[in-house]
Simulated assay, not measured.
Amino acid sequence: MRKDYDFSGAKRGPVVKSPGKKRITIMLDDDVIEAFRKKAEAKGTGYQTAINQALRDALFAEAPLTADTLRTILRQELHEV
C-alpha cells in the first residue's frame, strides 16, 4: 500500500491555515505559562488564547505599553490564578 502514496510534493505544517495568525517562537517563564494554562482551563479556553488576549488588552489600553506596564499586567494575571 505504501507504493500508492506520493509525498514528493508534500509540505510540512498545518493542513488548515489560520488566517490572521502567525506562528512565532517566544520564551516565557515556566510560572507564567503555568499560570495562563490554569486560568485558561478555568475559562475553558486555550492558554495561547489567554496570552493573546492579555497582550491585546495591554496593547490597546489607553496607557502606553512599557516594560513596567507589561510586568504589572503579568503580575495581575498571575495573582488571579
Rank of each mutant, 00 (worst) to 15 (best):
A42C: 09
I26T: 14
G46C: 04
L28E: 03
P64L: 01
I33W: 00
P19A: 10
L28V: 15
S8L: 01
L28Y: 05
R56M: 09
I26N: 03
Y47K: 06
K11Y: 04
M27G: 12
L74E: 02
I73F: 01
I26R: 11
A54N: 02
T66V: 10
F60H: 07
A54Y: 05
P14C: 06
D57G: 04
L65P: 03
A63N: 10
K17Y: 03
R12Y: 10
T45E: 03
A67E: 04
T49Q: 08
E80D: 09
S8T: 15
Q48E: 10
A67C: 06
F60Q: 01
Q48S: 08
H79L: 09
G20W: 05
I33D: 05
F7V: 10
E77I: 10
V32S: 00
L55H: 02
L70H: 01
Y5P: 00
K3M: 07
A35M: 01
V16W: 02
Q53S: 13
Q48P: 00
I33H: 01
G20D: 01
I24P: 02
A40G: 02
T72C: 04
E77A: 13
L70V: 09
V16F: 10
D4V: 14
G46P: 05
E41V: 11
A50I: 07
G13T: 08
T72L: 07
A40K: 04
D57R: 10
K21C: 11
G20C: 03
R37P: 06
A40V: 06
L59R: 13
G9I: 07
K11T: 15
D68S: 13
D31F: 08
D29V: 10
T69V: 13
D29W: 08
E41D: 14
F60Y: 13
L28Q: 05
M27H: 15
V16C: 06
I26W: 07
R75W: 04
F36W: 01
R12C: 11
R71Y: 07
K22V: 14
T69Y: 10
D29Q: 14
M27Q: 14
R56N: 12
A42G: 08
L70D: 00
V81L: 02
M1I: 14
A63Q: 12
K39I: 12
M27W: 15
K21M: 14
G44V: 10
L74W: 00
R71V: 12
A40Q: 04
E34H: 09
E77L: 06
A54H: 04
D68C: 02
L28G: 11
G20N: 03
F36E: 00
D31S: 12
R37K: 15
R56L: 12
N52K: 12
I24R: 11
A54W: 00
T69K: 07
I24F: 09
K22L: 14
Y47G: 03
V16S: 08
K39A: 13
Y5G: 05
